[in-house]
Design a protein around this nucleic acid. Structure first.
Length: 425
RNA sequence: GGAGACGUGUCCGAGUGGUUGAAGGAGCACGCUUGGAAAGCGUGUGUGCGUUCACGCGUACCCAGGGUUCGAAUCCCUGCGUCUCCGCCA
């Protein structure tokens, strides 16, 4: 969430941001609510002060045996006015708070302005599209042929968008997850954390999924709890409602979790195989940093994610997400897209975002700096990486003419003992 | 699921319904002391909102939300959370 003072003083900037992000928040209404609230607050404070001062006279009057009947009558009336004013104040505050939660974060100046993903801009790429001297198969064919996945039976249990990973198929995914976790821990100094997969409403509001994206979340109505759509939610909220010591910053977490997404509104999109699932696995990086350092951390986190693909030997490109495609809470996001030669397209396997203090303000994550001043931290996160699409790219890129495939050596320690026939290159 | 206990500041811990933002301690910061440190002594040490050029002032907050009262950290109700015991189950 944005600072109401900032909105008050930079209404035009915020309006433009809302427009550029294709949001609909009514900033004019918000500001008039804010004015209303401050007026009521002022009135309340004054009434309340009068009330307290007069109230305190009662014990003093009684002590000297003075009659308090008139004073009490007066105070009863004042109590009513105070109550009425407070009710109004509470109502307006609530309304303001609700509106405030629908104001998106402001895109960073370096973000391209544009309507949608067509305005995303190319940053850099690594490697190149692999050439085959045969027609490469897509992952859907390859996983059938190698008995790695079973979509049909999964659909029997859960409907479309779920998968059984079977035998070597499961081993391969587990290997990927472990490789990625170990790599971030050993090479990049992240601290591993395994977090709850089910969280409450305020946690989901803290990171910005609510109220806007409620339809995309799985809700356990009985307990009003949500299945997390990404470990970002659980991990970022770890310091919610805390003022942490500056010495613990920066803080870098890496976390494996399954991710649950209803994908409302994406029906008919990427329906085949592993491209879009209601449940998938992901290794997520989350960083907490001091305000001035978040864009440096942001670039570093991007590189952390890239290095996974480099180890896996997969060609990818990096795109800067344009304002219209940028998520609600983010100021700037890079997508990493890996090349899938079977699908003949780039697949998004990572999104690296800076939220500056937007999430910190919502979740109230603050720190006391060297001078004892309380400030909001900056939060960032990035996939490192999501497994299904990485899986697609992996087997499509490493496939042989006969439909078998080899694997990059970085996965060898995780696989060789169990799966001896596979070739590592 | 059943029974009970409890939720106060960075932490521990007081708190008879009436200047209580909250005793006391620890910690932390600064100063004095010291060759240096420890100990000791002194001072300071909440967050949000509003207001002020500023010192400050006002107000809210003792888990959350309601209620009683002229007045609530203190009384009542509800919810949430933590802990203990029992039951059940990975």
């Amino acid at each position: 969430m944005l600072d109401i003072k900032f909105i008050r003083e930079n209404a035009e900037v915020v309006k433009t941001a809302v427009l550029n992000k294709n949001e609909k928040t009514d900033i004019k209404k918000l500001i008039s609510l804010d004015n209303r609230k401050r007026t009521l607050q002022f009135e309340y404070d004054r009434y309340r002060n009068d009330q307290r001062v007069l109230s305190q006279k009662i014990p003093k009057f009684k002590a000297i045996g003075k009659d308090v009947t008139d004073l009490l009558d007066d105070l009863k009336e004042r109590a009513m006015i105070v109550k009425k004013t407070l009710d109004k104040l509470n109502q307006v505050s609530l309304e303001l708070e609700k509106e405030l939660l629908t104001v998106p974060n402001i895109p960073h100046v370096s973000v391209p302005i544009g309507k949608d993903e067509s305005a995303n801009t190319f940053v850099r790429e690594w490697g190149e599209k692999k050439e085959f001297d045969f027609a490469p198969k897509d992952h859907f064919e390859l996983v059938q042929q190698n008995d790695l996945l079973d979509f049909k039976r999964a659909a029997k249990l859960s409907g479309h968008g779920f998968a059984f990973y079977t035998d070597k198929g499961a081993l391969l995914e587990r290997a990927l997850i472990n490789f990625m976790l170990d790599f971030h821990i050993k090479k990049h100094g992240y601290k591993e954390i395994s977090a709850p997969f089910i969280v409450n409403r305020s946690t989901m509001t803290g990171t910005g999924q609510l109220p806007k994206l409620e339809e995309d979340m799985y809700l356990i109505e009985q307990d009003d709890l949500f299945l997390i759509p990404t470990a970002e939610v659980s991990v970022t909220n770890i310091f919610a409602d805390e003022i942490v010591h500056h010495k613990i910053l920066p803080q870098k977490f890496v976390s494996y979790s399954p991710c649950f997404r209803r994908e409302a509104g994406s029906y008919g999109k990427d329906t085949k195989g592993l491209q879009r699932l209601h449940q998938f696995n992901k290794v997520e990086m989350v960083r907490f940093v001091k305000p001035g350092n978040s864009y440096i951390a942001f670039e570093k986190m991007l590189v952390d994610a890239e290095e996974i693909l480099q180890e896996l030997g997969l060609h990818y490109r990096i795109m800067t997400i344009s304002s219209g495609d940028l998520s609600f809470a983010s100021t700037k996001t890079y997508d990493i897209e890996v090349w899938a030669p079977g699908a003949k397209k780039y697949l998004e396997v990572s999104s690296v975002s800076n939220f500056e203090d937007f999430q910190a303000r919502r979740a109230s994550i603050r720190f006391r700096d060297e001078n004892g001043k309380v400030k909001f931290v900056h939060t960032l996160n990035g996939s490192g990486l999501a497994t299904p699409r990485t899986y697609i790219a992996l087997i499509e890129n490493y496939q042989n003419m006969d439909g078998s495939f080899s694997l990059p050596v970085c996965l060898k320690p995780y696989i060789q003992d169990i799966w001896q026939e596979v070739l590592f290159v």
